[in-house]
């Protein structure tokens, strides 16, 4: 595999729900170690795009490749694909009946075939990495939103994915809990993890992202380094949207 071979290739992907064109000829690539931030108004298709990458949603046309996986081919083993793509959800979706530790060990044991002891050890390590070494036996119902989301990240990390998808991981959190989650994410980025992150946290984007995408009505309206996109947006819609996000989050 040459160095120019991107990890993720999204090529002319389109998707419609009924009459609504949710994704419209979307193309971009990501290299290993890239951290790409995706922004855009609600309903612009961000979640749909993420879900196409791990085949929770099927594309109508276009092609997606991830390493050796031809994601959009009908015949592929989707479970094998999903082993290589982690996902962190906006509404977190921890398994409510399992402790933090077991949320992480489930995939290790059932998908990666770890023994009980190995799974426990690996899961403990991941939970310590997100700062939750002292909450192994807590149930989701006993954790704060920020703690839950960090378990969610540990659960995804434990699968040792090549690519981590984040769908607005902090949007459901109280403002004072956002920082603990973005800090973990920034750590991961610094550690070389390839991440595709839907978020409106400009602080995180500036600090950690290599790249920012602005999605509008199913199309990529603008793409560039985060600093450039935020300071001098070329697209009028981008400017307008970033302006509104700033007002909401109180950034200058």
């Amino acid at each position: 595999m040459s160095d120019y071979d991107p990890l993720l290739t999204v090529e002319s992907v389109s998707k419609r729900y009924g009459d609504e064109r949710v994704l419209n000829d979307v193309s971009f690539t990501m290299d290993r170690g890239d951290v790409t931030v995706m922004m855009g108004p609600s309903g612009s298709g961000k979640s749909t795009l993420l879900r196409c990458v791990n085949r929770l949603t099927e594309v109508d046309s276009g092609e997606i490749r991830l390493g050796d996986h031809r994601v959009t081919d009908p015949g592929i083993d989707v479970d094998a694909l999903r082993r290589d793509v982690g996902m962190v959800f906006q509404d977190i979706n921890l398994f409510t009946h399992l402790t933090a530790l077991k949320n992480v060990t489930l995939g290790l044991r059932e998908v990666r075939g770890f023994s009980t002891d190995d799974a426990r050890e690996a899961a403990t390590e991941q939970l310590e990495r997100v700062g939750l070494g002292d909450q192994l036996d807590s149930y989701p119902g006993e954790l704060s939103g920020g703690q839950k989301q960090r378990v969610g990240i540990a659960r995804a990390l434990a699968m040792e994915p090549e690519l981590l998808l984040f769908d607005e991981p902090t949007s459901a959190l109280d403002p004072e809990l956002v920082g603990e989650v973005t800090a973990v994410m920034a750590d991961l980025a610094a550690g070389g993890m390839t991440m595709l992150v839907v978020t409106h946290e400009k602080g995180f984007a500036r600090e950690a992202a290599t790249d920012a995408l602005f999605l509008d009505a199913g199309s990529i309206a603008e793409r560039g380094p985060p600093a450039q996109l935020f300071e001098n947006p070329e697209n009028e819609r981008t400017a307008e949207f970033l302006d509104r996000v700033s007002t909401v989050s109180g950034e200058p």
């Binding site: 791990n54 929770l56 479970d79 094998a80 999903r82 082993r83 793509v85 982690g86 996902m87 959800f89 509404d91 979706n93 921890l94 398994f95 409510t96 009946h97 399992l98 489930l106 995939g107 059932e110 998908v111 659960r155 995804a156 699968m159």
Partner: peptide, 26 residues
């Protein structure tokens, strides 16, 4: 919650495993 099965599928569990380990116990 339907998203529980989605989350299970997202970490690579098959539909069957997701039902067995995540949906049924709840």
């Amino acid at each position: 919650d339907r998203e529980q099965l989605t989350a299970a599928r997202a970490i690579g569990l098959s539909q069957r495993q997701g039902i067995r380990h995540v949906v049924l116990p709840q």
